[in-house]
Measured scan of single mutants.
Amino acid sequence: HNLTITQGKLFFHYNPKLCLSEIHKMEEVSGTKGRQERNDIALKTNGDQASCENELLKFSYIRTSFDKILLRWEPYWPPDFRDLLGFMLFYKEAPYQNVTEFDGQDACGSNSWTVVDIDPPLRSNDPKSQNHPGWLMRGLKPWTQYAIFVKTLVTFSDERRTYGAKSDIIYVQTDATNPSVPLDPISVSNSSSQIILKWKPPSDPNGNITHYLVFWERQAEDSELFELDYCLKGLKLPSRTWSPPFESEDSQKHNQSEYEDSAGECCSCPKTDSQILKELEESSFRKTFEDYLHNVVFVPRKTSSGTGAEDPRPSRKRRSLGDVGNVTVAVPTVAAFPNTSSTSVPTSPEEHRPFEKVVNKESLVISGLRHFTGYRIELQACNQDTPEERCSVAAYVSARTMPEAKADDIVGPVTHEIFENNVVHLMWQEPKEPNGLIVLYEVSYRRYGDEELHLCVSRKHFALERGCRLRGLSPGNYSVRIRATSLAGNGSWTEPTYFYVTDYLDVPSNIA
């Protein structure tokens, strides 16, 4: 807008934040220059609390790290170098490059900038070799853009010569660093050979998330399962459950009422301010606690030095998902009996873990797994792929695949051998790939016309006998059925096997 004052003059007093240069501009645009008398524009009460600059400061050096910015700028000295009290560095987070010096300023003089007072450097006698002032900004957020400017702080001049310097606002972004852990990993099994893994992005990506790394490792069953005799009275049979499938998407929606109208769909109840505040506090606490764990609990591995020492970490090797089922080394339970199943799973520490690289999504279907087997899954978020990966501390989750139908069934015939004193040795093959492992066998036998009897055969007993022995049988026709019990439950009964026990007292003698 054009402003013209045809008559009258300007009068400025007691404006401590208004620089004289701005008042002189007002004289020019209003056409009143030359009308004012000496005392109409006070030299001592206008701009006496402001830094009124008329020179431009330029930054000469900028260096960044993930949490620091090192700045240096060209030296500046007023005509009387004693008038320079120091520099004021202003900075704040700036997602967009549209910041002005006066953003967030209120009537009390406060604003949204963080201000650092910096002492002037030592003055050199040689004007050509003056030290460049600077400042190291610490405690910054990774991968965050900051708006920065600097200006001088000078003393009051009796001659009211307006001098000083100020830089333009520059924008500097800190470097990326390792992201925080992925949030809320959930693993479920939808079949006997697959596990579905879902997660949420890290709360602090500290860069642009480029991919996720998912490692999985087959877990050995508890050692007590191999040692305890679950045929003993009072000892509860062990059981394991597989990871249940995901709930429906509708039930997972946030901010939804727990109660549904019987007449149909209901609208979600909005969260109160107290609920939102509580969630923010919980989120802040979780982030602080995660940072504490990362800094205190997890110790970084030592990389190899120039002395030739090897990095103890196993090298990563990509495998196809079809090879995942046989990740671990199978060892027989008892070496003397080769027909026992290889369900003991000690994992070799030198073995390469299978892994998958996930790009542009937060889910993965891990296939080719062994049925009813526990897996430990390790999830890392990465925001750099080359020249070397920059990934987060791992988040861990466990899951067990679903049982395989008929995996616990005894394959092959049940054979028998009759000894003296009416002892019958029953023999059968253990299931080759049971659900988890076989903890015991149930032997059901009966003599024709009598009630059915049951015998429990422990895992250890089966390994020693290759089956079991029935003792003290009365003469007669017998039928026997056997079924295995694994961590997933009972298998199917075998087809009945028949044998006849004679009275050993009636056996004919070869003595003449």
Rank of each mutant, 00 (worst) to 15 (best):
E224S: 12
V507L: 01
E224I: 07
P238T: 11
R466Q: 05
E260H: 08
S257M: 03
M427V: 05
K460P: 07
T502C: 08
S248Q: 14
Q252L: 13
C391F: 02
K406Q: 11
R481L: 11
V327F: 12
I209Y: 02
N206Q: 15
F337D: 13
L321W: 13
F246W: 07
I276W: 05
S458T: 13
T401G: 00
A395Q: 02
R469E: 12
Y212F: 13
V480K: 01
C468M: 12
F215L: 10
E356K: 06
A220Q: 12
S223Y: 09
Q384W: 05
V480W: 06
V299A: 15
M427W: 10
V345W: 10
P270S: 11
R400V: 09
H211Y: 15
V480R: 01
K357R: 10
E282F: 09
H454W: 03
R301C: 07
L369E: 04
L235E: 09
P300I: 10
Q275C: 07
E452P: 01
L487K: 04
R370I: 11
A484V: 03
S344R: 14
A407M: 03
G325F: 10
S367Q: 10
E227H: 10
T328C: 13
L437Y: 14
E404L: 07
R218Y: 13
T328Y: 13
A220M: 14
P244D: 13
K361P: 10
T210V: 05
E452M: 05
L437Q: 06
S257V: 10
P244R: 08
I209D: 03
G207I: 02
P434W: 00
G234R: 08
L440Q: 13
S342A: 11
S392Q: 01
Y504Q: 08
H352C: 02
L379H: 01
H454E: 11
E452G: 10
G449C: 10
K302D: 15
C382Q: 00
E404D: 12
I366L: 10
L379Q: 01
H454V: 10
G308W: 11
E265D: 06
F226T: 12
V424I: 01
R240T: 09
R370E: 15
S398I: 08
I276T: 06
G322A: 13
E452R: 12
S283C: 14
N208F: 11
L470P: 00
D261M: 04
E227I: 08
N383M: 15
Y375M: 06
R353E: 10
P475N: 09
I482F: 01
Y375W: 15
M402A: 07
V423G: 15
E465Q: 11
S367V: 09
Q275W: 09
Y498M: 14
P434Y: 03
T241A: 11
D250S: 09
E221H: 10
L455H: 08
T386R: 13
V439Y: 14
R400H: 12
I377G: 07
V345M: 07
W428F: 09
E290H: 08
V423Y: 10
F215K: 13
T494Q: 02
D273Q: 10
S342E: 10
E221V: 04
A336G: 06
K460Q: 09
V297L: 09
V327N: 07
Y498W: 06
L280P: 15
V327P: 10
G412I: 04
L437R: 03
V423A: 14
T502W: 05
S315D: 14
E290C: 15
V296Q: 15
E442M: 12
V359T: 08
S305R: 04
S268M: 12
T307W: 07
E227A: 05
P270A: 09
R483D: 00
I410G: 09
Q219V: 15
T386A: 15
E495P: 04
E279Q: 15
G306W: 14
L369C: 08
E258R: 12
F215Y: 05
G449H: 01
S458E: 09
S348P: 08
E279T: 08
P245D: 11
T347H: 04
N490V: 08
V443M: 10
R318G: 09
P238F: 10
D204W: 11
E221G: 12
E282V: 09
P244S: 09
F298H: 08
N422M: 05
A405H: 13
P332N: 08
Y396N: 02
T415F: 09
R447I: 07
P332Y: 04
D204S: 15
H211K: 05
P508L: 09
E388P: 08
L225F: 03
T502G: 10
Q275V: 11
G368F: 13
F499H: 01
I209S: 12
S363G: 10
D222H: 02
V214A: 03
W216A: 06
K271R: 13
D323Y: 13
L455K: 11
G306E: 14
S479L: 03
N255G: 13
V334Y: 11
A220K: 05
S486Y: 00
D323R: 15
T343L: 13
L277R: 07
S344C: 09
G368I: 04
A336Q: 15
P387L: 14
S262I: 10
Q429C: 12
V439N: 04
G325R: 02
F462I: 04
R469P: 03
P431G: 02
Q380E: 02
C269Q: 05
R390S: 07
V358G: 15
N206G: 08
V358S: 08
E221M: 13
K287M: 07
S283P: 09
A395D: 05
K432M: 08
L235H: 12
G467W: 02
F246T: 11
E282Y: 05
D291L: 08
L437H: 04
E362Q: 08
P475Y: 09
V214L: 12
G325E: 04
F215G: 13
K302A: 11
G264W: 11
N295L: 07
R301N: 13
V457Q: 14
S474L: 12
G306Y: 13
Y396T: 08
R286E: 08
Q256W: 07
S341F: 08
D273P: 14
A335Y: 06
I438P: 02
Q219H: 13
T401L: 05
E362G: 03
W242S: 10
K406L: 08
L437F: 05
E247K: 13
Y212V: 08
R319D: 06
S367H: 06
P354S: 07
T497V: 10
Y478M: 01
G322C: 10
L235A: 10
S304V: 13
W428V: 00
Y212S: 08
K361C: 12
R370T: 15
D503P: 13
R318I: 13
V324M: 05
V501H: 05
A220G: 14
S341Q: 12
S248K: 15
P496I: 06
G368Q: 05
G234N: 10
I276H: 10
R319M: 06
A488F: 11
Q384A: 13
R301S: 14
E281M: 05
G207W: 01
G322K: 04
I276N: 15
R376I: 15
E282M: 05
S304M: 13
E451S: 14
Y441T: 02
T347S: 11
P270Y: 09
C382I: 01
C231F: 01
P205K: 15
L487T: 05
T343C: 04
L277C: 04
I482W: 00
K432F: 09
F499E: 00
L293C: 03
V327M: 08
S315Q: 08
Q380T: 12
V397D: 01
T340K: 09
E265I: 14
D409V: 04
A463V: 08
R459P: 04
L321Y: 09
E388S: 05
T241D: 13
Y448V: 07
Y445P: 01
G489P: 03
G207L: 00
D222F: 07
V297W: 09
I377H: 06
I366E: 00
S274W: 12
K406P: 12
T415R: 13
R447S: 14
R318N: 06
S398T: 14
T494E: 01
A394H: 12
D323G: 15
P312H: 11
A336T: 07
C468T: 01
E404V: 10
A399H: 09
V443R: 00
P300H: 10
K302C: 05
K432Y: 12
D503G: 03
E442H: 02
E452F: 14
N435V: 00
L470N: 01
E350G: 07
F462Q: 10
Y500L: 09
E265L: 09
D273G: 05
R218W: 15
V324A: 12
K236T: 07
G472I: 04
K302R: 12
Y292A: 05
V358L: 13
L293S: 15
E430H: 05
S363F: 05
T241Q: 11
V327L: 10
T340C: 03
P349Y: 14
G472D: 07
H211C: 02
D323T: 14
A407Y: 07
P496Q: 02
P314I: 02
G368W: 07
S367F: 05
Y396R: 12
R471N: 12
P387F: 12
F372C: 09
T497S: 09
S304K: 13
V214Q: 00
T210Y: 11
D250N: 14
H416T: 09
Q219N: 07
E282R: 13
S239T: 10
L487V: 12
S458V: 08
Y441H: 03
G436S: 09
